[in-house]
Structure formats: structure tokens, C-alpha cells
Amino acid sequence: MTADGALARGGVVRQQAGRRFPIGRILSYVLMIGATVLWLVPILFALYVSLRPYAETSKLGYVSLPHKLTFSNYVNAWQESDMFHFFLNSVLITLPAVIITLFLASLVAFVLTRVNIKINVALLILFTAGNLLPQQVIITPLYRLYLLIPLPHFLADSGLMYNSIAGLVAINVAFQLGFCVFVLSNFMRTIPDEMYEASIVDGASLWTRYWKLTLPLVRPALAALATLLTTWIYNDFFWAITLIETGSRRPVTSALANLQGQFVSNQNLIAAAAMIVAIPTLVVYMLLQRQFISGLTLGSTKG
């Protein structure tokens, strides 16, 4: 039985569960394999089209046997859009934004869940609700605000929040903060109080309880959030186009938009470009996946 083969590695507990309910196991496999295939088909199809010359698909349609598979769309997309330059911009925006957001959010979440101050609920609602606002609702006042706030020239050569990478990082942090506070505070709430009691008895300071105790315990959540944040901030187009005026300072999403074109668009080329653009998020995911999949759990890290 395949199920048994899998069970052998599953440890004592899982073995018991599995042996008792092989039907459940089989259903699980059917579900997961079916879903995986369904989820992959659209992506693989786009990948397939991106590997075909435009002239061919525009003649035969997308669903047709290939006469020729080629990376030329990828090469052209890379060169035509000056993608490397825009990748660097994206790194400059995404990396600081993700780190700052997670750091600030974990501070707030820790205070909200582990320090008993009066305005806890109000703060939580402030952050969570701020996260409900669509970007478009705040953009006009924000834009005016950005034109008013001066920045020192070492941070922004525009001398303003507007049209500067620093300004872009700031709004990404502000905008994602609410969500991260909300998620992290809920994760921190799952930590048993007993663990804190023990550390208080040991005389651990507030900061130690945050840095040494809480952060390691919420690492799965931090990893999951880091993945999501990277994806969102890296793929953000809205802030980038409304708050950055100089085209060459924008992130890689705008390089994609440049390829999309005014009228004539070569869908195969854009698909190829979009595939390239997706690679960094995949890498980040692969790197962080281990953090939340390999079961970093309360039991194993305590102490």
C-alpha cells in the first residue's frame, strides 16, 4: 500500500491515525493531487504559451501543437524592458519594507497581547481596521502629503517623500502594518501564558520576553508573513506608479507594464516577462517555506 509507505515515515502518532482510516488517506490524496493539477493547469498553460513564438500562436491559437519552442520571448523580454535595473529597484524597496514591517508589527503585537495596557482593544482595532482601507481611498490625500514632507537629500534626491524610494518604503510599511499586527497578535495569543509566567519568575525583562521568548515562538507566522509581504510589496504597482514620478526609479512591475504596451501587445512576450518577474518571489518562498513547514513548534523550541 502506498499509504503504508508514507506512514512509515510519519512517526508513531500518524501511523495510528493512518492505519485506522485508509479511506481518509485515499481521499486526502485524491483531493490534493486533484487540486494540484487544477491549480497548475492555468500556470503551465501560460508557461507553454510563453515558450512559443508570437507568430505561431497568433496563427494557430494558444491551444495547438508547437512547431517550435523557444526562449526567445524570455530573452527579448529581459532585454527590451531593461529588467535587471528594475529588479534592483524592487530589491531596494521590498527588502527594507518587509523587514521594517515585520519588526514594527511584532513590537505592537507583543504589547497588545502581553502587556496589559488600557488601550489594547482600541489599538488593535486601529491597526486592523486601517488594513481594511483600499489603497485608492487614501491615495489623493497621501499624494498631497508626500509633496509636503521634505526628506534629507541622502534619503531622497527629490528632497521629498514624493518620488523617492524612501517614501515608497514608508507607505508600504504603513499599509501592511495593520495586517501584520493583526495576524501576529493572534498568533502570539496562542502561546500559553504559562511560558511567560515562568520567564517572569526568572526575572526576564520586557524586552527579553519579546526578543528571546516571543519572536522565536512565532517564527512560523513570521515566515508566512514574510512570504506574503514580499509577494505583496514586490508585486505592488499602485503605490509605485502614484508616488514615483521618475520611470527609471520604479520597481519591476512597471517594467512589465512598459511591455504591455499601448495598443499592440504581444501576449506571449508579456507572459514570458511576467514569468521572469515571478522568480524572485518563488525563491523567497522556497527559502522561507522550511520555516513554517518543518514544524517549528512550541514544544520543541521551549527552553
Partner: peptide, 15 residues
């Protein structure tokens, strides 16, 4: 499974 199912979340809007 996990990787595949999470893929759509990671893709840009353009894609």
C-alpha cells in the same frame, strides 16, 4: 502540494 497551491498568491497581477 503546498508549493503549487500557494503559487497563485505569489504571481503578479500582470501574470
Amino acid at each position: 502540494y503546498q508549493s503549487v497551491l500557494f503559487l497563485p498568491v505569489m504571481l503578479s497581477l500582470a501574470l
